[in-house]
Design a binder for these strands. Structure first.
Lengths: 333, 333
DNA sequence: TTGTACGCGTTATCAA
DNA sequence: TTGATAACGCGTACAA
């Protein structure tokens, strides 16, 4: 691969002159600049940003650590983050932890070796489960939709309590008085918040939450959680179910379909996230929309701000209710 | 950030010794090695792989260029590719072209500046539309599910003709004699192959394809294509529709739902890809499964092979039919 | 306006 | 067993 020295030799100048000419330094004659540019083009010169990085002590690189790429929520985060990164001339290192804290730690270490300018950690739950592995990091780090006990790093989150509340208020407004909640235990803190929004809203409406309305199924994935949760809720006699997320809600819809339960006529179902499939399942899912792409953009903007030594504030974005066809007025008893 | 020289100074040795000790060189005394390792740990030393890369003339980095992250097909490609990369100690630079050939060219250029060891281009169609921008690249490049006129680069693809054929044979076996095809014009070559598989299969069964059975809707996205395509096919009087991909098929399912057309009782619908939502829409979609993650893994393995100067062969992977609930016996007329 | 010399952090070669 | 030195490709302070 050809370097500025090669060009310098061909042009009969020093590599310094070439370096300057290539970057349009005004001190170099228009003549020699022109000659050098042509030579560079001719030889197919491609600047070596590794060398530039070593020199400049920055790589224009962001490490993005996600639990899984094949998660519809993560997907939109990435879309948003990548958009901003590309705009600002940064490249993204993508790596997946598969929810393994050991792997997560290892990846952050790798990012640091590669001297990324900043890191975004998406949907991590290891802070709450395994302590503060991320605390020893020496570059700007932003948590995106992650669970942390301390405010050790700037974070972007949504208003989970408010989001849950608006969904439950919607169900109340439709006349439901027995409302179930299907939770997920793999994101304990977020689950607690959505549960809190659910509980508070019902209580404010003068409805005490019956213990058997709430279920946190013990299961490996959301499909299972939906199935198990539905069984439980049906036994509890609810007329509507608010689910921790869309994947669970969609699983509930499917189970209903197979059991011959008409949604929303016999049972209303609401989710959380507004992942893309939510709008094209049958019936289309009423859900709480997180501004996923916006969160990705905001997260990226925050790391970039930190890199530029600007101070940032934690961001808590608002959710909006998307009313679709999976919820309707409560059946008369 | 602390370097081997810092450690050397503290330890009273040369930086060379530190470098060796850190990498377990047998020539260094166990004593000093131990001392240096401790010092490194103490000071929080993190090796600088930028410097290592500059020296070694390789970065252990793969550039992955995709059209969009928020595409369920691409998502699985990435999942597979990332898995292999991580196994082999490579990091992935992720960048999106948004189907813009200019951007695509720019990104490949950026990858080369960053001295990636190899590049994977996913789902590109620019080869066929805009000539050979990728031909000037100076590092190993593998095309994954992309459309190229020439065999300028090693490629991983599926058997599109065979896949389409197996889907149509399935519909024929169910007794359908009027089968429609809804295509997509944004992937012209792939579309042609799937169309070919469809046409050949029908002809082999002695069924001439009526011109109005086939429609390539002029639209911006697959949702539109599904809607428009369905209208056309209904007018043509088909009893089953084979769609270019799952997104279109799912859109068809939705339109049917809204129009009160019972699937599969009145109309059978089949797709291509087997993206994740395919199994949880209602009714679950019969479709041709591409081994997406496997393709991602294979693509990554191919670049790595090229990097190691091994020769590789184009890969054409097989598809399998996933029979679900969106297809059944043809209605009696 | 151009060139010399040095530094970025690491590894490799050669000498001691 | 250890160290001095050069090299990777580039940018920059200083000198000419």
């Amino acid at each position: 691969m050809i370097t500025i020295k090669d060009i310098a030799r061909r042009a009969g100048v020093s590599h310094t002159t070439v370096s300057r000419a290539l970057r349009g330094d005004a001190r170099i004659t228009a003549d020699t600049t022109e000659r050098i540019l042509q030579l560079a083009e001719q030889l197919g010169y491609i600047p070596n940003s590794i060398a530039q990085s070593l020199n400049a002590q920055r790589t224009n690189t962001i490490g993005m650590l996600v639990t899984s790429v094949a998660d519809p929520v993560v997907m939109d985060f990435m879309e948003g983050a990548e958009e901003i990164a590309q705009e600002r001339g940064y490249c993204i290192f993508l790596s997946t932890s598969r929810n393994d804290p050991v792997r997560e730690f290892h990846i952050v270490e790798t990012f640091q070796r590669r001297r990324v300018d900043g890191v975004i950690v998406v949907a991590s739950r290891s802070g709450v489960q395994y302590g503060l592995a991320l605390d020893r990091i020496q570059v700007p780090l932003v948590l995106l939709d992650s669970e942390e006990i301390h405010d050790s790093h700037p974070a972007v989150n949504v208003d989970n309590i408010g989001g849950a509340a608006v969904a439950v208020r919607h169900l109340l407004a439709l006349g439901h008085r027995q409302v179930g909640y299907i939770g997920a235990t793999d994101r304990p803190l977020t689950n607690l918040k959505r549960l809190a929004g659910y509980t508070e809203t019902l209580q404010q409406a003068g409805i005490p939450v019956a213990p058997n309305w709430v279920i946190n199924p013990v299961a490996d994935d959301d499909i299972q959680r939906g199935r198990l949760g539905l069984e439980h809720c049906l036994a509890a006699g609810v007329t509507a179910i608010f689910c921790y997320n869309d994947q669970i809600a969609i699983s509930v819809l499917n189970s209903c379909y197979h059991k011959g339960i008409a949604v929303p006529q016999q049972l209303s179902v609401a989710g959380f996230d507004d992942i893309r499939p939510a709008s094209y399942v049958n019936p289309p899912l009423t859900t709480v929309r997180q501004p996923l792409q916006q969160m990705g953009r905001t997260g990226m903007e925050m790391v970039l701000a930190l890199i530029e030594k600007r101070t940032v504030q934690n961001q808590r974005l608002d959710c909006t209710l998307m009313v679709r066809a999976s919820t309707s007025t409560a059946p008369v008893r």
